[in-house]
Structures are given as structure tokens and as C-alpha cells.
Amino acid sequence: QRITLKDYAMRFGQTKTAKDLGVYQSAINKAIHAGRKIFLTINADGSVYAEEVKDGEVKPFPS
């Protein structure tokens, strides 16, 4: 399943989102408010992988 960072954070909370991605909650808040195009893939085992689309390139998040 693929979902935006904002939607994932709204569904699970910023604290869990940060923990799942290995970053601080403040980084999640800042990324959402900056309007960054970050998409999360939720794997069947429950693990989460995030990618950011920037300038036409897709890069892992966090980099």
C-alpha cells in the first residue's frame, strides 16, 4: 500500500511515523508543513519504506 507522509501521520500519529522511519518527530512535522512530496510504502510485514519525489527524481527518505 502506498500513502502520503501526511496521510500516514494523520492515521498513525507523528510519533509513530517518526519511529517507523527512524527520524525525530520534529522532522516529520517540518516535512509535512513544508509540503514535501514524500510517499510511504507499507509492506505486507508491516515495515515501512519512504521515498521523496523532488525535481523529478525519486530518493529514499530520510536520505
Rank of each mutant, 00 (worst) to 15 (best):
residue 2 R to F: 08
residue 2 R to G: 07
residue 2 R to I: 10
residue 2 R to P: 08
residue 3 I to G: 02
residue 3 I to N: 03
residue 4 T to N: 07
residue 5 L to K: 00
residue 5 L to D: 01
residue 5 L to Q: 00
residue 5 L to G: 00
residue 6 K to M: 10
residue 6 K to T: 09
residue 6 K to D: 07
residue 6 K to N: 09
residue 7 D to V: 06
residue 7 D to Q: 09
residue 7 D to Y: 06
residue 7 D to E: 14
residue 7 D to R: 06
residue 7 D to W: 05
residue 8 Y to W: 04
residue 8 Y to E: 00
residue 8 Y to M: 01
residue 8 Y to D: 00
residue 8 Y to G: 00
residue 8 Y to A: 03
residue 8 Y to T: 00
residue 8 Y to R: 00
residue 8 Y to V: 00
residue 9 A to P: 00
residue 9 A to W: 07
residue 9 A to K: 05
residue 9 A to M: 10
residue 9 A to V: 15
residue 9 A to R: 06
residue 10 M to L: 13
residue 10 M to R: 13
residue 10 M to A: 15
residue 11 R to K: 14
residue 12 F to V: 07
residue 12 F to Q: 04
residue 12 F to P: 00
residue 12 F to N: 07
residue 12 F to C: 04
residue 12 F to D: 02
residue 12 F to S: 03
residue 13 G to W: 01
residue 13 G to N: 02
residue 13 G to E: 01
residue 13 G to C: 02
residue 14 Q to R: 12
residue 14 Q to I: 15
residue 15 T to L: 15
residue 16 K to H: 04
residue 16 K to N: 04
residue 16 K to L: 03
residue 16 K to D: 03
residue 16 K to C: 04
residue 17 T to E: 01
residue 17 T to F: 02
residue 18 A to W: 02
residue 18 A to L: 03
residue 18 A to P: 01
residue 18 A to F: 02
residue 19 K to E: 12
residue 19 K to I: 10
residue 19 K to F: 09
residue 19 K to S: 11
residue 20 D to H: 07
residue 20 D to L: 11
residue 20 D to E: 07
residue 20 D to K: 07
residue 21 L to Y: 00
residue 21 L to M: 04
residue 23 V to S: 05
residue 23 V to W: 06
residue 23 V to K: 02
residue 23 V to G: 03
residue 23 V to D: 02
residue 24 Y to V: 14
residue 24 Y to L: 13
residue 24 Y to G: 15
residue 25 Q to D: 08
residue 25 Q to H: 10
residue 25 Q to C: 09
residue 26 S to V: 10
residue 26 S to K: 09
residue 26 S to N: 09
residue 28 I to T: 01
residue 29 N to F: 12
residue 30 K to M: 12
residue 31 A to V: 07
residue 31 A to N: 03
residue 32 I to K: 01
residue 32 I to L: 11
residue 32 I to H: 01
residue 32 I to W: 02
residue 34 A to Q: 13
residue 35 G to S: 08
residue 35 G to L: 06
residue 35 G to N: 14
residue 36 R to W: 07
residue 36 R to S: 07
residue 36 R to P: 01
residue 37 K to E: 14
residue 37 K to H: 15
residue 37 K to M: 13
residue 37 K to N: 13
residue 38 I to V: 08
residue 38 I to T: 00
residue 41 T to K: 06
residue 41 T to R: 06
residue 41 T to E: 07
residue 42 I to A: 04
residue 42 I to R: 05
residue 42 I to Y: 07
residue 42 I to G: 02
residue 42 I to S: 04
residue 42 I to W: 07
residue 43 N to E: 10
residue 43 N to P: 04
residue 44 A to V: 12
residue 45 D to Q: 06
residue 46 G to N: 07
residue 46 G to I: 02
residue 46 G to Q: 05
residue 46 G to V: 02
residue 46 G to E: 05
residue 47 S to F: 08
residue 47 S to V: 07
residue 48 V to K: 03
residue 48 V to T: 05
residue 48 V to H: 03
residue 48 V to A: 05
residue 50 A to V: 03
residue 50 A to P: 02
residue 51 E to P: 00
residue 51 E to G: 04
residue 51 E to H: 07
residue 52 E to S: 03
residue 52 E to K: 01
residue 52 E to D: 03
residue 52 E to C: 04
residue 52 E to L: 03
residue 53 V to G: 04
residue 53 V to C: 10
residue 54 K to Q: 15
residue 55 D to I: 05
residue 55 D to A: 10
residue 55 D to G: 12
residue 56 G to L: 06
residue 56 G to I: 04
residue 57 E to S: 11
residue 57 E to A: 10
residue 57 E to Q: 13
residue 57 E to D: 11
residue 57 E to R: 10
residue 59 K to G: 11
residue 59 K to Y: 15
residue 59 K to F: 14
residue 59 K to C: 10
residue 60 P to G: 06
residue 60 P to I: 07
residue 60 P to N: 06
residue 61 F to D: 02
residue 61 F to L: 03
residue 62 P to C: 05
residue 62 P to I: 05
residue 62 P to T: 05
residue 63 S to W: 08
